[in-house]
Amino acid sequence: MFLVLAAALFATGLFGALSQQSVVMVMMGLELMINALVVAGAAFWYFLAPARPDGQVFVLVVLAAMTVEMALGFAVATLLMRARDADMTDMAGDLRG
């Protein structure tokens, strides 16, 4: 059941990441997807190998990845706003060297 919850959260986040135009809303979708990994990791630890701490450490690493995603996402959002006055993904669809 935990994995079904994780699948639902992942799919919901994927829908947001694919469909939203706002940069912050795309980040919300990514957050939901990573949160699904947290739920799945905790479930794997508890139901498969609870005697070892590996699963808990994995969840900590995923939480750190979530933090990195958030920090760099906001940095890129700030950069986009500064450099192009853009807050939508469609306004930043090209690369400029």
Partner: peptide, 8 residues
Amino acid sequence: VAGGVAVF
């Protein structure tokens, strides 16, 4: 899940 759906 309801909270996640409500976001969008």
